[in-house]
Design a protein around this nucleic acid. Structure first.
Length: 573
RNA sequence: CGGGGUGUGGCGCAGUUGGUAGCGCGCUUGCUUUGGGAGCAAGAAGCCCCCAGUUCGAGUCUGGGCACCCCGACCA
């Protein structure tokens, strides 16, 4: 490509809307443009990068035995109603009507569509296993798009779905995807880590997320530097011991205007760990108490797992009053019958505890969980905090912010049962497909590469995803020796199958250097009259600024040498 | 959905006590320049987010919308 003909609208100044480096640099380098909140146009330079990422994903998916297909982004409501997610997705799903007023969804994900395909065409265990994937635009009406291309309402996802005859088969399919993801992110030059994760709305028996550490990340992960344990805080556990308090009589104490844990502790002179936070939720229309220790925070994703339903919310102050006869800050399950109680594991066997008396301005002390509260289930409900001992090895945990790049799920039979995607097994019995689903956010991959690989001048692309591998900065005007040499190098390198951008614009050298650095093209060839007088051109690496002066006829070989080092690394992650 | 902020040439911004708009970058033309975002000169380009209202007169004041950004809530 000749830069003089290219559409690469670079900007000298940072656009006001961008906070993150990757967002700023994508805008400044002319990769993307925002159309409206959470919706971006992908301009030629950006699209080339996304295509490179997609090609790496494609190669590794194919290598892992998955087959690419392409599903509709538009799907009728009925199929979503079959799985129940027409309602579960709520406002996050974009919905449209056709001319006959029939409801459609712009798909936020494709489990239902793939399962529908599978049930129509997969009839026998002989057809299994299968793994189908696509790279497709997903629509999600995020309540708050942000951080450029990281959280958007319209994005490209590689989503793959495996279909197996049993759990053992799923384990194999899942592992293949897990390995493929390692290769994909390694080839993209990303430093990442893997965490155990929550399955959320997807359902299923287990999942892991591929994460990139970043202060701008929206996920928090607990990581153990000692043993390598890593988990999203949504599911992270620790080996925290609860202090034991002496058995005591259940006593009502006056606590005027003392509502918060801090106020009550200060007033009664007890540690926060001696309190029980009694949180009232409404789950599927029914009140539920969720209990955690006073110094703990409730983890709502763990609550979701414990409840087995995503349809819950904190009770309103009015509901609290109606159900407990007291206001928020003075409630507990003690003495209230007929309401389901879930308690955190840290409260198991606890005694001598303090919580609300269900009477305004009063608390109860001496609560013994076993004696005074009918706990239906003890479950892990608390949020892990930094410095707590690792669940595996006991060493202190670190909590780090991270961006989720990919997610692998063992779905099991949730969708195949809901949509009746059955096959006939070897013994003649009909069984639901055992499924897995595996996603990668394409734009996020590119954004994370920039986050991890840039400097003050701009992006530093790894060769594997660079929009062009080489930029020739032709420093003299047309008709000069520089132009002649540039032109011939341009042709020669393209014949050698390099992707080359020839900067033949009528601009001064400094201007071209700035643009070359900003756009992050890994190798720049400076063709200037100055060095040509010595019969040389300069090859400059973006990454480390290293310069090689070579004769024009040596350029191709030198670049082949430089690129082979990076394109075929000896060490795989 | 709660809190905060911003809407003025393509981009970044200024705009006084209300008097129909300016700066830098970019763009066009010409001359000079040519190894890290050049200089000079001459130009083009703005429904001042929208709708009402106050006023002789509104970018500016009042009311109501809308959009976008940030923090939180939310989020495979």
């Amino acid at each position: 490509m000749r830069w003089s003909k290219a559409f690469i609208p670079t900007m000298k100044e940072d656009p006001a809307e961008a906070e993150m480096q990757s967002h700023q640099l994508m805008l400044r380098s002319g990769m993307i443009r925002q159309l409206t909140a959470g919706v971006y146009e992908y301009l030629p330079l950006g699209w080339r990068v996304f295509l490179k990422v997609m090609q790496i994903v494609r190669e590794e998916m194919n290598r892992a035995g998955a087959q690419e297909l392409f599903l509709p982004a538009l799907a009728p409501a009925e199929i979503w109603q079959e799985s129940g997610r027409w309602d579960d997705f709520g406002d996050e799903m974009f919905r449209v009507k056709d001319r006959k007023k029939r409801d459609f969804a712009l798909c936020p994900t494709h489990e239902e569509i793939i399962t529908d395909l599978a049930r129509a065409k997969l009839r026998s265990y002989r057809d299994l296993p299968q793994n189908w994937y696509q790279m497709q635009v997903k629509f999600r009406d995020e309540p708050r798009p942000r951080s450029g291309v990281l959280r958007v309402r319209h994005f490209i996802m590689k989503d793959a779905y495996s279909m197996d005859r049993d759990q053992a088969g799923l384990d194999v399919s899942y592992q293949a995807m897990y390995d493929a993801y390692h290769r994909i992110f390694s080839r993209c030059g990303i430093k990442f880590f893997v965490v155990g994760a929550s399955s959320g709305l997807m359902g299923g028996s287990g999942s892991q997320e591929f994460m990139v550490a970043s202060p701008s990340g929206e996920d928090s992960c607990a990581v153990c530097p000692a043993c390598g344990y890593a988990a999203n805080l949504e599911v992270a556990q620790s080996k925290l011991q609860s202090p034991a308090y002496p058995e005591a009589q259940l006593t009502e104490v006056s606590t005027p205007e003392k509502r918060t844990v801090e106020e009550v502790c200060g007033f009664l002179k007890v540690p926060a760990s001696q309190l029980i936070k009694s949180l009232l939720y409404m789950a599927d229309g029914q009140p539920v108490f969720a209990l955690v220790r006073g110094d703990d925070e409730l983890n709502e994703s763990k609550l979701q797992t414990a409840l087995g339903s995503g349809n819950f919310r904190p009770a309103t102050p009015e509901e609290v009053l109606k159900i407990t006869q007291a206001n928020v800050g003075f409630i507990s399950p003690v003495g209230i019958d007929g309401i389901k109680v879930l308690a955190d594991l840290a409260l198991q066997g606890a005694r001598g505890m303090v919580s609300g008396a269900n009477k305004d301005h009063h608390h109860l002390s001496g609560i013994n969980l076993a004696r005074d509260i009918k706990v239906e289930k003890y479950a892990d409900l608390r949020m892990v905090k930094a410095e707590e001992p690792c669940i595996k090895c006991g060493q202190p945990l670190v909590v780090t912010q991270a961006i989720e790049l990919g997610h692998v799920f063992k779905l099991g039979t949730k969708y195949s049962q809901a949509l009746k995607a059955h096959f006939v097994d070897e013994d003649g019995s009909e069984k639901p497909l055992v499924m897995g689903s595996y996603g990668i956010g394409i734009e996020r991959v590119a954004a994370c590469i920039i986050e991890q690989s840039h400097d003050q001048s701009g992006i530093i692309w790894p060769l594997s995803v660079a929009p062009y591998q080489v930029v020739i900065s032709q420093l003299g005007g047309s008709g000069t020796e520089s132009a002649k040499v540039s032109e011939s190098l341009y042709n020669e390198l393209q014949d050698a199958r390099f992707e080359v951008l020839l900067d033949d614009r009528e601009e001064r050298p400094g201007f071209k250097f700035k643009d070359a650095d900003l756009t992050g093209i890994p190798i720049r060839i400076n063709v200037g009259e100055k060095s040509l007088r010595e019969g040389l051109v300069e090859i400059k690496q973006r990454r480390d600024g290293q310069v090689f002066k070579v004769r024009p006829e040596e350029v191709r070989r030198k670049i082949q040498e430089l690129t082979s080092v990076e394109m075929w690394p000896l060490k795989q992650q």
